[in-house]
Every structure is written in C-alpha cells, then in structure tokens.
C-alpha cells in the first residue's frame, strides 16, 4: 500500500513541479527528468548483485549498463542544453 501512496504523491508532485515552467526550458526539463528516471539503476544494481545463479544476475548486469547509459547520457545532454541558457547572456535562444 505504501508503494501506491508514494506513486500517487509523486504524480501530484510532478504536476506541481512542472506547471508554470517557461517554454524555452521545456526541452531541457524533459531531458533532465528523463535522466532521473534512470533511478532504475538502483534496482538494476540490486538485481545484478544478488547472486542466486541462473539468468537473473545477467539480466541485472544488462540493466545496469542500459540504466547508466540513460543516467550519464541524460545528465550530460541536459547540461549541454542548459549551457545555452546562461543568465548573463541576454540573447534569447529560440531553439524550440
């Protein structure tokens, strides 16, 4: 039941957090939240590290690789996008 509670609270939280965001930040925000979804990495590490033999740990290792691709790539791509929004730069980049 606490999983369901967390799920519902997270849904409301997400709605509150991303409302009223200026449109030029939508793309980096999308990319940044996508990187957070790579938190599957934690589950992947646990699945890979709990040695019971069989297929499970190997699926876990593959999941670790896929999730770290998501995490590292996601944060770096977001950083590169956000570098275009330096507050010192007065020029507005219309990239979306």
């Amino acid at each position: 039941m606490h999983l369901l509670l967390a799920f519902i609270l997270a849904a409301f939280l997400g709605l509150e957090l991303i409302s009223r965001v200026p449109s030029q930040l939508h793309t980096p925000l999308m990319s940044g939240t996508n990187a957070i979804s790579g938190i599957t990495l934690v589950g992947a590490v646990l699945a890979a590290g709990t040695g019971t033999g069989g297929l499970s740990p190997w699926l876990g290792v593959a999941a670790v690789a896929a999730a770290s691709l998501n995490v590292v790539g996601g944060y770096l791509v977001t950083e590169r996008m956000l570098r275009m929004f330096q507050p010192t730069q007065k020029a507005v980049h219309k990239n979306d």
Binding site: T40, L41, L55, L59, V64, N70
Partner: peptide, 19 residues
C-alpha cells in the same frame, strides 16, 4: 536515452520475476 531507461526497467522486472 529514454529508450535505454525503458529497456533497463524491462530487464530489472524480468530479473526479479525469474529470481
């Protein structure tokens, strides 16, 4: 990148199920 996150979720769920 989003797709690789989805793949990771699929693999974790499979690993937990098969364990």
């Amino acid at each position: 990148f989003n797709g690789s996150g989805g793949l990771a979720s699929l693999l974790v769920a499979s690993a937990e199920f098969l364990r």
